[in-house]
């Protein structure tokens, strides 16, 4: 039975500057178990996608100048597993299966490529999505870092 060795919760306003803040938070939190450069880069990329989705999609209907909150909940387990849950109280996703299809995007005004979920799926071990229209979305990313081998590199 795996045990939680550390946890952290962060709440960020849905401003695009906070995409970088979220990545930095995840890097700092993961440092405790010393992932490889590639593993950390993959996780940062996946988190960036999920947080960007909150900003671009979840809160897109808010009036100019208003913002919602992005909640990030991080957990580190003793089997070198990290989970990052990114949730919002935004518009929700009508069809999750369709939203996860590569190149699918509802964003027409901005230059988006609809690759967010594919990146999350490619760069983590598991992606779970729960959503309720009008209530919000929660994306759970799970990644297991490789066993620690000292004296290498």
């Amino acid at each position: 039975m795996k045990k939680i060795i550390n946890e952290m919760k962060v709440r960020l306003p849905s401003h695009s500057e906070n995409e970088a803040v979220a990545r930095t938070v995840v890097s700092a939190f993961s440092a405790l178990i010393d992932p490889t450069v590639e593993e950390l880069s993959d996780l940062r990329c996946a988190v960036s996608e999920a947080v960007t989705n909150c900003i671009v999609h979840a809160y897109r209907d808010l009036p100019e100048g208003e913002f919602g909150y992005i909640y990030i909940s991080l957990r580190l387990y003793d089997n070198r597993e990290i989970t990052v849950e990114i949730s919002d109280n935004g518009c929700g996703i009508e069809d999750i299966k369709r939203a996860r299809e590569p190149f699918f995007t509802t964003s027409e005004s901005d230059e988006r490529c609809g690759m967010g979920f594919l990146v999350m799926e490619s760069f983590t071990d598991r992606v779970s999505v729960k959503s309720k229209v009008g209530k919000g979305t929660s994306v759970l990313l799970r990644k297991i870092f490789s066993p620690h081998t000292s004296e290498e590199e």
Binding site: C45, S48, E111, R112, C113, M115
Partner: peptide, 13 residues
């Protein structure tokens, strides 16, 4: 130093 799928969209664009 870092790029996510916005970088893909940027290149394709």
């Amino acid at each position: 130093p870092f790029m996510d799928s916005s970088g893909i969209a940027f290149v394709l664009g």
